[in-house]
Write a protein that binds this DNA or RNA. Structure first.
Lengths: 209, 209
DNA sequence: TCTCTTTCATAGTGACCACTATGAAAAGTA
DNA sequence: TACTTTTCATAGTGGTCACTATGAAAGAGA
């Protein structure tokens, strides 16, 4: 019995004439710019530099392509965001880094303004239920992770017992979502960073534990 | 020279067989639920209880219908939101009421979760530029109004001179946007109200002026 | 009742959507 | 070279989109 074929092993038949990762990245940027439902396959093929049949053989269909872009967007590194939140020195520090990183990420050069997860499909038809569910799952996972981290800090005395872990986590993620819209509306990086710093005043300062 | 014909004056020809305001309200709810681009005219006519030709003679086209729904949504009362913000007792109080009202509005019964302005078209194709511009105008107007109000409070000594009016206003409107997404993701009214109260900790307390 | 104006329901219109059938072309294997 | 496998480009497919042409029906004024 053979092991699973590695991705670098040469396969039979005519090889792909395009770089799959580059094409995926181009699709990601297109979805990022124009959302899921409103992006047409014609726009995708043009952005990716390939024809429709190539897209379908390489990525399945439009929905699968988007979900793969989303997976790559949400997990660019070895660790997931919930893992990074859990491993932060405190919930407060996780929130502060999350807000500052978002402010920079949503206003970076050479990428569309705002956040793919926040703006791809805030509302939509029943055809795109799976896509919206995937987006909601990412948002929920990050929010719950921050809430769990805050609950732990309360238990361990790093946050005061009067703190509301759910409210702090929800507020922080609401600001991330809102910064995406602001970035799309043209608010710049400096303003978003000021916003992030101001929002952190709502978090109680960490206590020695 | 005659005066402009009043809306209640009987016009020549066969009268409308449906209540225009009720049909407009039904369209508003449909757009609220499923956004602008992803809502089809077929869905609209079904929700409004009229046929396509009736919709087009009464409201123009899909874009005009949406803009009319948006106008009605954004200005339900005699005063606009920017006016209400300007006339509040302080920027802080305006922000607090804005957040609390949003928390309740986004989770009301007999209406879709979230905010029409926040979720109708966060991203989209170039076909809907006018619609997205109209949505952005509403968001910008509200944010600028709150910022101006905060600047006035700083000048008049109601807020400390170290306060950042732009950051406070942007943060508050970001939370409004974010609460809309949270409401759509199923977060309830109590959680949003707790969130709103927590966020107000980022505002400096009003000083006697 | 007759005329005029407007709205009504039926039944489409071309355009664009996601997606694919088809066969030639490009590689590896023998 | 011959054969197999896969991708390529061309040219569509049916379905759905926003929107409308057409003529009957419904009211007001004479």
């Amino acid at each position: 019995m053979e092991t699973l074929e590695s991705s670098t092993a040469k396969r039979l038949g005519r090889p792909l004439s395009f770089d799959r990762d580059k094409a995926l990245h181009a699709a990601q940027l297109q979805f990022w710019r124009t959302g899921y439902e409103t992006t047409t396959v014609a726009e995708l093929t043009q952005a990716m530099g390939i024809t429709a049949p190539s897209l379908y053989t390489a990525f399945g269909d439009k929905e699968s392509l988007f979900l793969e872009c989303l997976e790559k967007y949400a997990n660019p590194g070895p660790k997931t965001t919930p893992e990074l939140i859990a491993e932060a020195r405190s919930a407060r520090e996780a929130a502060q880094q999350l807000l500052e990183l978002s402010a920079r990420w949503f206003t970076q050069r050479d990428a569309p303004a705002g956040c793919l997860v926040a703006s791809a499909a805030s509302s939509g038809s029943i055809d795109s239920q799976r896509v919206r569910a995937a987006l909601k799952n990412i948002r929920d996972a990050n929010r719950k992770a921050l809430q769990k981290r805050a609950e732990r800090d309360i238990r361990e005395g790093r946050l005061p017992g009067t703190a509301n872990a759910q409210a702090l986590a929800s507020m922080t993620m609401a600001i991330v979502q809102g910064m995406s819209t602001l970035a799309r509306d043209g608010v710049g990086q400096k303003a978003l960073l000021d916003l992030a710093r101001t929002a952190m005043r709502a978090w109680p300062t960490d206590m020695a534990s």
